[in-house]
Design a protein around this nucleic acid. Structure first.
Length: 486
DNA sequence: TTGCTAGTTGGAAGA
DNA sequence: CTCTTCCAACTAGCA
């Protein structure tokens, strides 16, 4: 009898899971395992909303496995030690998992593969988190990942369509004999030291089933899918948002990118006038792929120093400014409302992320993008190591994007799509009674208007921590110097 | 080597 | 309200 352990990490799904299929094909008995690493679930590292989403995804996976006569075994502890112990206790002969290309995961997986190999355990890994295997894409590109999106699209054309999604398993090997003794152990948020989740957008919606339902629901409006243009979507729309909000499912692998890709192709076939990458929905999947591919070969991808694609810029450490930004008290309602939405819902529209990221770094506060990256990493339900680093480099004009003189206005930008300030009024109820005219710059409201609205600047809502026009001019000069020095 | 082109998503002012 | 123009500007990719 060959006892096999399949280790779920990302890829929390049964559909299109090549590593799982390959692993169970050779198994007589199976131990499906997930490990909760206590170091990664502290409130300092992860907000309650993302942790709740993960726990829901695990519960959904457990239910799916049970329908096939199996179950999910949730272990808690340092992952390498946990898996090593399980391999020994359950006399595992084969280990399988989906490859994870993040540096932390690569390091972790190297250790467990070494331990398994030393003990004579066969290890089976396959990629499944991206459309293509980044290593294979780079090899096809001649050993160097493209540095621009357009060059990456050319590479994709050369690669041809990604592999078709594989079916979910119709049956699973019986549970390993020792699994019966292990209690069902998906912990609660409270057990992990967290308050309850506050999300409205993704509340109670973790897991593969919800992912596929939300995908179907979004795809049902076929003209909208075919004509989707990301830059034209509304960053101030929040009930409902103007984009798919599928990102958390892709982050945890509740949704396969290849399943998404295939579904899009079917719709695109009906619409000759569909939008194209980079702005189309397919283009969004390709941005993800582009960044994953480049990150695979770039050292220190989530840092400025030692990162060969990142411009070296003398950001200034300023804990007070950083805290004001993170806590939504910069005095700019559009920025503050977005930061409140981030913390309440764990989600922000892409362009709202742009606005707050530009504000923290090159636009206004001149604080390092790495500090902002850590804040997003904590609060976003869809926090994705590679995409988070990529977009912070983009917005801070450290890589990919170089037109640093283009600075988002914290006053004018949101006014274009939301002149009445409904978004601000929702997330900053203290400002709700201000007239439209002052909703994005309340410090300009005459005192009588502030009193009438029940919102005195400096008492009920902060005055701006920087003068945007002055900060912008000063920072443009600093960017010019940094670019010249580079 | 050099020159040329194109690049997901700005803002202000004016027609 | 929508469109155009100007501002000031850098890089990767390619011929």
């Amino acid at each position: 009898m060959t006892a096999t352990l399949f280790w779920f990490r990302k890829g929390l799904r049964l559909h299109d899971n090549p590593a799982l299929l390959a692993t169970i094909a050779e198994a007589h008995t199976l131990y499906p395992v997930f490990v909760i690493d206590p170091a990664l679930v502290t409130p300092e590292r992860v907000g309650a909303n993302r942790l709740a989403f993960l726990l829901e995804s695990l519960a959904a996976l457990d239910s799916s496995l049970r329908r096939l006569g199996s179950r999910l075994i949730v272990l808690r502890g340092e992952p390498v030690a946990c898996i090593a112990r399980a391999l020994a206790e359950w006399q595992i002969a084969r280990l399988g998992f989906e490859r994870d290309d993040e540096p932390y995961a690569r390091q972790r997986d190297r250790q467990i593969v070494q331990i398994a190999t030393e003990r004579g355990i066969a290890v089976r890994t396959l990629p499944g988190h991206t459309l293509y295997d980044p290593a294979a894409s780079i090899a096809a590109a001649g050993g160097r990942a493209p540095r621009t999106y357009q060059a990456f699209l050319k590479l994709l054309a050369q690669l041809g369509p990604p592999a078709a999604p594989c079916p979910a398993p119709g049956a699973l090997p019986p549970l390993g004999p020792l699994a019966g003794a292990i209690p069902r152990a998906i912990p609660s948020l409270a057990e992990l030291g967290h308050p309850s989740a506050t999300a409205t957008l993704h509340a109670g919606a973790g897991g593969e089933g919800a992912a596929l339902e939300r995908l179907s629901a979004w795809l049902a409006d076929r003209p909208r899918v075919a004509h989707f243009a990301k830059p034209d979507t509304d960053p101030t729309a929040f009930a409902p948002p103007s984009t798919t909000t599928l990102s958390p499912y892709l982050k945890f692998g509740c949704l396969s990118p290849r399943t998404f890709w295939s579904a899009l192709q079917q719709i695109y076939a009906e619409f000759p006038d569909r939008t194209q990458p980079p702005v189309s929905l397919l283009g969004q999947l390709y941005w993800r792929e582009f960044f994953y591919t480049l990150a695979w070969e770039t050292p220190n991808y989530d840092r400025m120093v030692g990162n060969p694609i990142c411009r070296q810029i003398p950001w200034e450490d300023d804990p007070a400014r950083l805290a004001a930004w993170e806590e939504g008290r910069t005095g700019y309602p559009w920025i503050d409302a977005a930061m409140i939405q981030l913390r309440q819902e764990g989600w922000l529209h892409h362009l709202a992320r742009h606005a707050v990221a530009c504000f923290l770094t090159r636009g206004d506060l001149w604080v390092s993008w790495e500090a902002g990256q850590r804040v997003f990493e904590r609060w976003l339900v869809d926090a994705d190591w590679c995409l988070n680093a990529s977009n912070w480099m983009w917005l801070s004009a450290s890589a990919f994007f170089h037109a640093y003189h283009r600075v988002y206005s914290p006053v004018a930008f949101a006014r274009r799509t939301d002149p009445g300030g409904q978004y601000v009024r929702h997330f900053l109820p203290g400002l709700a009674r201000l007239p439209d005219r002052y909703i994005y710059e309340p410090w300009k409201a005459p005192l009588a208007v502030q009193r009438e609205a029940g919102c005195l600047i400096g008492r009920d809502y902060p005055a701006p921590i920087v003068d945007h026009d002055q900060a912008r001019v000063r920072n443009l000069e600093r960017m010019r110097s940094a670019y010249a020095a580079g």
